[in-house]
Structure formats: structure tokens, C-alpha cells
């Protein structure tokens, strides 16, 4: 018996749709701008250990709260640390927090959503009611409460943000899985006797992924703001390790003497979050067949 997916591969049914999506994406200038913004921050963060910048923790008591200059492009902080270096290293923490927490949300949320949407019945009822309960607690309040009970650290902040972001992925995947489970090709897969795990892996999972990709991009943006918020409140990255939120928290105390301490972390958060939002909007438009 011929495997239906092999038939689909042979006929190359997927490819025109995929190239159309990419074509639309590459014509979407704001999405490309977003992708470029994200790429700049990712490259800077990745290259942090090899860039010719001072140690982010090195203090210089002779250069405390210096405004931007040739020696310190973005100025120095309250104990003479180079702000540019802390910005780049802090970017690693922020980007990692965004990506890791969304990965946690996807790893928990997508399988639960598929189970709920594919099996329906009591599995769906239990998963959906729990999702609704978690959705009733605002994202940041849930993350603050979890971070408070787990203890303040960057790892716990990522876990807290990840758990807080999970219900959105469960709900989205469930809706997609319900629609896909009703498609003819899934019925055919059943009819030719494929086992449920194979159907879930080969037909349901790949087809729920496009909207999840869009949601993931937008959620990375919210997660970066959430990490910055938690670190700003003192519940995320702990000093002396740099993070944009923690830098803003310190900067708040020196707002009149050294306002540049507050400028850069805020601008960086704004730009990277804007980048992810533009990218997510662009991906959504590219994947939406109604936008043709």
C-alpha cells in the first residue's frame, strides 16, 4: 500500500505554496526590517565573547557615571562599568530568556493542544478547562507569582514566563488540530490503517506549525518584555550579571545624574521587541491565504 505522504512528496504539492509564502514574505518590507533588527541583536549577542569590548563586570572607580565618549561609546554606570559591553551581554540574557521561555511554552503547549484537538471528549474537556483557568490570570501577574514562589533568578524567570505563555499555545494548537483532524487526508490515513502516533506526527503536527510559528515570534516579543519587567522588579537576572531590565532598575536611581544609563536598555528592548512584532506580523500576512 502506498503511503499517502510519499504520494504528496512525489507530487510536490507542498512546494508552490511554500514558495508563494516566501515570495510574499520577501515583498513585505516591514517584516524584512523586523528580521534585520532581530538579526543585528542576535549577531551582537552571539559574538559577545569575541567582540573587542571590556569585561561587563569590570569596574572603574575613576570613570563612574561618565556620559557617552570615545572611550565608552554609551557611557559608564554607577560603578564605572562600560554600558556598551553590558548592553551586549545583557542582550544575550534577554534574547535567551525570550527564546527559552517560548520553547518551554511550545514543548508543553503544542502536544497538549494536539491531544485536546485530536481526541476531543474528556481529554479536551480537562485540558481546555485548565487552559481557561490559566488564561484568566494575566500573563505578567502569573509570571510574577511563579517567579516569587520559585525564587528570583533568570532560570526561574524563564520557567515562569514559559508556563505563563503555555495556555495561548494550547488553545491555538487545539483549534488548528480540530480543523486538520476533519480533513480528508487525515480520514484517508485512518482508513489505510496508520496508527494514531503516526497520524499525529506526520499529518497533524506539520500542519499545525505555521500559525504556531507566527504566535511564537510574537510571544518572543512579549517574553522579552516580561523578562525585562521581572528583572526590572528584581525577580529575574540577579546582579552583577547584566540584563536590560536589571540595568533599567539600577538606572532609575540615577535618573537625574546619569540619564544615559536609562536610555540604552530601553531603546534596545524597544527595538528588539519591535523587530519580533514586525517579523510576526509579516509572517502572519505571508501565511494568510486571504491576503493574496
Amino acid at each position: 500500500m502506498t503511503d499517502p505522504s510519499a504520494v504528496a512528496d512525489e507530487l510536490d504539492l507542498e512546494k508552490p505554496a511554500r514558495s508563494r509564502v516566501w515570495g510574499k514574505f520577501f515583498r513585505h518590507y516591514s517584516a524584512l526590517f523586523g528580521a534585520a533588527l532581530v538579526a543585528i541583536f542576535v549577531i551582537l549577542a552571539a559574538l559577545a565573547p569575541v567582540l573587542p569590548i571590556p569585561d561587563p563586570a569590570a569596574t572603574d572607580w575613576g570613570a563612574v557615571r561618565q556620559p557617552p565618549s570615545a572611550a565608552h561609546w554609551l557611557g559608564t554606570d554607577e560603578i564605572g562599568r562600560d554600558i556598551l559591553s553590558r548592553m551586549i551581554w545583557g542582550g544575550r540574557a534577554s534574547l535567551m530568556a525570550g527564546v527559552v521561555s517560548v520553547a518551554i511554552a511550545i514543548v508543553i503547549g503544542v502536544p497538549l493542544g494536539i491531544l485536546a484537538g485530536y481526541f476531543r471528549g474528556w481529554t479536551d474537556a480537562v485540558i481546555s478547562r485548565c487552559t481557561e483557568a490559566l488564561l484568566a490570570i494575566p500573563f505578567l501577574i502569573l509570571a510574577i507569582a511563579l517567579a516569587a514562589f520559585l525564587g528570583p533568578s533568570l532560570t526561574n524567570a524563564m520557567i515562569a514566563i514559559g508556563i505563563a505563555a503555555t495556555p495561548v499555545f494550547i488553545r491555538l494548537t487545539r483549534g488548528q488540530a480540530i480543523n486538520i483532524a476533519a480533513e480528508d487526508y487525515v480520514e484517508s490515513a485512518h482508513a489505510i490503517g496508520l496508527s494514531t502516533p503516526i497520524i499525529l506526527r506526520r499529518y497533524i503536527l506539520p500542519n499545525v506549525l505555521p500559525p504556531i510559528l507566527v504566535q511564537a515570534t510574537l510571544t518572543v516579543a512579549s517574553a522579552i518584555i516580561a523578562e525585562a519587567s521581572l528583572s526590572f522588579l528584581g525577580l529575574g537576572q540577579q546582579p552583577p550579571a547584566p540584563s536590560w531590565g536589571a540595568m533599567l532598575n539600577t538606572a532609575k536611581g540615577f535618573i537625574t545624574q546619569a540619564p544615559w544609563m536609562a536610555w540604552w536598555p530601553g531603546i534596545a528592548i524597544f527595538l528588539v521587541v519591535l523587530g519580533f512584532n514586525l517579523l510576526g506580523d509579516g509572517l502572519r500576512d505571508a501565511l494568510d491565504p486571504r491576503e493574496d
Binding site: 518584555i225 526590572f232 532609575k252 536598555p265 528592548i269 524597544f270 512584532n277 514586525l278
Partner: peptide
């Protein structure tokens, strides 16, 4: 649309600090 997306991307605690700096200080 650009203004709205910027409004969504700006961390409100940073906006607050900047406004204090400008309007109050």
C-alpha cells in the same frame, strides 16, 4: 500602524522613567 506597533513594543516602565525625566525633572 507604525505608531501602534511602536506603542505595543515600548516597555511601559521605560516610557515612565523617560517621562519622569522629561516632564517632572
Amino acid at each position: 500602524n507604525v505608531v501602534a506597533l511602536s506603542g505595543l513594543s515600548i516597555p511601559n516602565f521605560w516610557l515612565g522613567i523617560m517621562l519622569i525625566l522629561l516632564v517632572s525633572v
